[in-house]
Amino acid sequence: MAITDRRQRERTAQRDLIVASARVLAEQEGWDAVTTRRLATEIEYSQPVIYKHFASLGALAEAVALEGFAELAAAVHQARVGAADADPVVVVAHAYVDWAVANPSLYDVMFVRATGLQFGAEETPPQLTEGYAELLAATSTVAGDRDPEVLTEVLWAALHGLVLLDRGGRLRPAHRRARVEAVAALLAG
């Protein structure tokens, strides 16, 4: 049993190293730089070792994205529960945008690059549903007789649009916080 446990720990450590290296490489040079050849060089393993863990670069990107979704959900949750007397929609909206701005490559693999990850399906991974649940918890506080899930989708779409337009240099950088608060105010009705 000890040998089997050790081998499993080694496989897990290899997988974690591959994911972490892909993430670092993407943060430093963009997702186009993440290739199996480049990763193999970076982690000093052969390409077949990478393919032993991930059938494709798409599968690796999904693993990185899942980490990102978990981190985003945690950031939004922490902001929401720590909001005290503040408007939870405003707090959650700022947490979402701040996290996206601080993690552009991770945000890209989560929301811009094509992956097989599905939202709103039976097989949706919990990392995806947890972040949505945090947004839903915030919008539920202002929903009144409106559908809180529709409000959540509108908030999410608005924040995502703001993030991408801001990153593309199409919005005035000094007004990021005001835009986020305006979105929250519009939802509050």
Rank of each mutant, 00 (worst) to 15 (best):
P48G: 09
T115D: 00
G168E: 05
A26D: 04
H94G: 04
R38Q: 10
N103A: 07
D16W: 03
E181G: 10
A83C: 05
V180M: 02
V64L: 14
R38M: 10
I18M: 00
A95G: 07
Y51V: 08
Y107M: 07
V150Q: 15
L171V: 10
F119P: 02
L117K: 03
Y96F: 15
D32Y: 09
I3A: 04
G58T: 11
Q47V: 09
E67D: 12
H77A: 15
I18S: 07
A178H: 11
V90F: 03
T152E: 00
P125H: 06
A188C: 03
V19H: 02
V34G: 02
D147C: 00
E153C: 09
E27C: 06
S56T: 06
A70C: 07
R80M: 04
T152A: 11
V183T: 05
L186E: 07
F54A: 14
V34R: 01
V89E: 02
M110F: 08
T141V: 07
G144Q: 06
T41H: 12
L60F: 08
H160N: 07
D147M: 02
D147I: 08
A65T: 01
T115H: 03
L57Y: 08
V163F: 04
V76S: 02
Q118F: 03
L186I: 02
R6Y: 14
T35K: 10
R11A: 09
A93C: 04
R9I: 14
R177N: 10
G30V: 05
L187F: 13
L165M: 15
V142T: 06
R170C: 06
E123G: 12
V97N: 13
V24M: 14
T152C: 08
V97G: 03
D5E: 13
A100E: 11
A84V: 02
L171H: 08
E10P: 01
F119K: 09
Y132Q: 07
A83V: 05
Y107C: 00
D145A: 09
T152Y: 13
E44Q: 11
A73Q: 01
A73R: 08
M1F: 10
D5A: 15
P173L: 10
D87A: 14
S105A: 10
R9K: 06
V150M: 13
L155W: 00
T152I: 10
A184T: 03
V150F: 12
T129W: 04
E44R: 09
Q14R: 12
T35E: 04
G116M: 09
A138G: 12
L155G: 05
R9Q: 11
L39A: 01
Y51K: 11
V183E: 01
F111W: 09
Q47D: 01
E29Q: 12
A182Y: 04
F54V: 13
L159P: 00
V154N: 10
T41R: 07
P148H: 02
L162Y: 11
E62K: 05
E10Y: 05
T4M: 00
A79C: 02
D166N: 07
G189L: 13
W31E: 00
L57C: 02
D32C: 10
R6I: 15
A13T: 01
V109G: 04
A84R: 05
Y107S: 07
G168Q: 07
A157G: 12
F54T: 08
A185W: 04
I50W: 05
I50E: 11
D16E: 13
A102H: 11
E153R: 15
Q14F: 12
R167Y: 03
E71Q: 13
L159R: 10
V142L: 02
A95K: 09
L57T: 02
V81I: 03
A157Y: 04
